[in-house]
């Protein structure tokens, strides 16, 4: 392809070669290039500096830059594997790869476990789950009495915490989500299969030959 010369993609901080990123992920080279169009779009919504900051990430999710959200913030932090406080293109592609319909189930299970292990102790604790339930209630304006929340937590930990030590480890989480596959629905984005159709403009900026894509 290469219809139009690239307009300085390599000037983007953390820009990585699409061929290199495709080799590391489920994405084809064309899909990585289409993701770059999405990346640019999100990363230029507040400050156009070639990276995605947390504000831009939350804005993309909520269309509201003032909103703070525990879950969006947690996902951002997990995408930010190098703990730089911003996402570069490589971070973005490698993290989204886990959400691809063809990504390994095991990767989705581990990512979802980390998502809910808010304090990174290697366990999902009851207090963390309660905090997330309260955050959900705040976000949705759904109202639940404290005793209802405790009943939900009791039921959840009875099912998930099989050794009944008050916390859910990765092995327990693994068994729990296999019995409740709907919990992994958030970990798969069917849209990623059609990313080149969603961002066809990648063709105009492609730097690779069709044969390589």
């Amino acid at each position: 392809m290469g219809c139009v010369p690239s307009k300085g993609r390599r000037q983007f901080p953390g820009y990585e070669d699409p061929v290199f990123l495709a080799a590391q992920t489920t994405f084809s080279v064309s899909e990585v290039e289409a993701l770059f169009e999405l990346f640019k779009s999100i990363g230029s919504s507040v400050v156009d500096e070639g990276i995605i900051n947390k504000e831009e990430f939350v804005l993309a999710l909520f269309k509201n830059r003032k909103k703070e959200n525990l879950f969006a913030s947690r996902i951002f932090d997990l995408f930010d594997v190098k703990h730089k406080g911003v996402l570069d293109f490589g971070d973005f592609v490698r993290a989204l790869h886990i959400f691809h319909p063809s990504a390994p189930l095991e990767d989705k299970i581990v990512f979802s476990f980390k998502l809910y292990d808010l304090d990174n102790t290697g366990f999902i604790e009851r207090q963390e789950v309660k905090l997330m339930l309260l955050a959900l209630l705040g976000e949705s304006e759904m109202k639940l009495a404290d005793e209802t929340i405790e009943a939900i937590l009791d039921k959840t930990f009875l099912e998930a915490d099989t050794n009944q030590d008050g916390k859910i480890d990765l092995s327990e989480w693994h068994s729990f989500v296999l019995k409740n596959p709907s919990l992994l629905r958030i970990m798969t984005l069917p849209y990623l299969r059609d990313i080149t159709t969603a961002f066809p403009s990648f063709v105009f900026y492609s730097e690779v030959d069709e044969a390589a894509a």
């Binding site: 999710l61 947690r74 996902i75 955050a135 939900i152 039921k155 709907s182």
Partner: peptide, 25 residues
């Protein structure tokens, strides 16, 4: 009936966990 659901089913309803929205930009 929220009480019939487990906590994670409820939590996964959060808009902040729905990355589909990223593609709407």
């Amino acid at each position: 009936q929220p009480v019939a659901m487990n906590a994670f089913e409820l939590i996964s309803m959060s808009k902040g966990l729905n990355l589909e929205n990223l593609f709407g930009t």
